[in-house]
Amino acid sequence: MSSVREQPAGGAAARVLSEAMIEEIRGYFPRYPTRQAVTLPALHVVNRELRHVPLQAVVEVAELLELAPAQVQDTLTFYGFFKQDAPHGRTRAWVCRSISCALLGGDDLLRHMCRRAGIQPGQTTPDGKLTLEFAECLGACEAAPCMLAGDTLHKNLTTHKADQFLDGLP
């Protein structure tokens, strides 16, 4: 992780938001009458760059938005989306488990992929390539079962296609 720098002498936490990230977050300010409304956009910027939102980032986002860190943390933890302990894998994939996919084998696919990758839902492979999660309805029920991997929707997934996906991970 290049973004997490060494702890400086004196114990103050190293800054984790880059100038570019701060600039991008500030770019959202004119869109909303309150700074707090920039919370989710800011968390998405941080998460895209760091693949997680560590507590130090929460503190820095709160400074930018003139909020208490607890307010940002409160919002962040409401959504099961932002990891805080460690970055997610280079690819983050969500396999749908809701009804239309479940009727066509979605649960079996997730189990199969977890077994192949050697992880449980929510975990990241030791090589850092993949974080595998379940999703509630991905809104692609006409192509069930489906999976969203990064920005790519995988439709009509089969175990064969899932294996190809796993074997081709960068």
Binding site: S98, I99, S100, E136, C137, G139, A140, C141, E142
Partner: peptide, 11 residues
């Protein structure tokens, strides 16, 4: 925010 299981018309 279409998220109701089974629904994808907005998408």
């Amino acid at each position: 925010d279409e998220s109701e299981p089974g629904t994808f018309n907005n998408r």
